[in-house]
Write a protein that binds this DNA or RNA. Structure first.
Lengths: 163, 163
DNA sequence: GCCCGCGTACTCGGATATTTTGTGTCCGAGTAAGAGGGG
DNA sequence: CCCCTCTTACTCGGACACAAAATATCCGAGTACGCGGGC
């Protein structure tokens, strides 16, 4: 069987979260260019740009053009949840779209019997809520706090050097 | 911008859950053909077949060929969770694939510093677990129990009539 | 009247096209820094 | 020595190809029923 549809997250989510974490460690007010970010993780710069743009559009990051420009967090790290980043990249659309098939076909139910959302819809919605709640519980500050000091220091020097 | 990647579930999930629910209401031992199921919800039969096959392969449904053949539940309705159906159709693959980008690029960490999974990976994993747990809490029997009696009776007659 | 064999019609299953989505890349617009000249 | 101006190089942003996956469909293999013939 060729693995039919799967609930797959874009790889951009991983990229975005790691880059955002790196920005947390940057000095306040400083910006990091996408070229530096891409090289730091060995990512294709042009494609990473797409995800960084998405985060900027969503209000998670702030982009400044020109020399010495780059990206920085749009607000405090403890005010940005993982869900914010994920939805910025993947989009905030509900994963399950109820097509109301109970109202179609030979077994179609009358509209007045469908005032309440169907049970399937409710269950999928609750699961999605649980997923969102889980991602909301962690902020970028929490992630950054888990990073060992020596890595933090090393990144500081890595990101400030100008090749 | 064209809405970048999203966490989208196949519509087959909705189809599969509704059809499975319909099978719960069927008399014990009885089978329902895919043609009946497709017409009942106004779905394209050939495509619905693909999802029904997937559920049969996953051990959720049991298919019997020949005349009077069709699909039935592979086990008791209270032993089939919604997660079973979803994973049967969407596949059980993890949605988030950690590519270990922390070990790549100019900022690559040494392998011995990566004994623990990275924080990003852990967070995404926990969210997925929450999602799975939510879907595991409901069985097909629970869904069927929510269906009003008059709909149950009506489906009984609809599914037994032979056009 | 009963039993056996065969044709048939119905079932599911896998292999095959088409459309949408995600992946990857390129080039252009905008901006602030920084050097150079004038006051 | 300071200030203004212009060039320049660097930044991000959107528009453009390529690949993978989901969607949609068709035709073939297998099986049990049911009819017909034989006993």
């Amino acid at each position: 069987m060729s693995t039919l549809g799967r609930v797959k997250l874009s790889q951009g989510v991983e990229w975005g979260l790691h880059c955002a974490t790196l920005l947390v460690l940057a000095p306040p007010g400083a910006t990091i260019g996408r070229a530096i970010l891409a090289r730091h993780y060995g990512l294709p710069e042009a494609y990473l740009a797409k995800h960084l743009q998405a985060m900027a559009r969503a209000g998670v990051l702030r982009a400044t053009p020109g020399p010495k420009g780059g990206y920085q967090l749009a607000r405090s790290a403890d005010q940005i949840t993982v869900l914010d980043v994920v939805e910025a990249i993947e989009g905030a659309a509900k994963p399950f779209l109820c097509q109301e098939i109970r109202q179609r076909g030979t077994g179609a139910l009358p509209a007045e019997a469908c005032r309440r959302p169907c049970a399937v819809h409710v269950i999928m919605e609750e699961a999605h809520q649980a997923w969102q709640d889980s991602l909301r519980q962690t902020t970028l500050a929490d992630i950054a706090a888990k990073i060992p000091t020596w890595i933090r220091d090393r990144n500081q020097t890595l990101l400030t050097e100008t090749p």
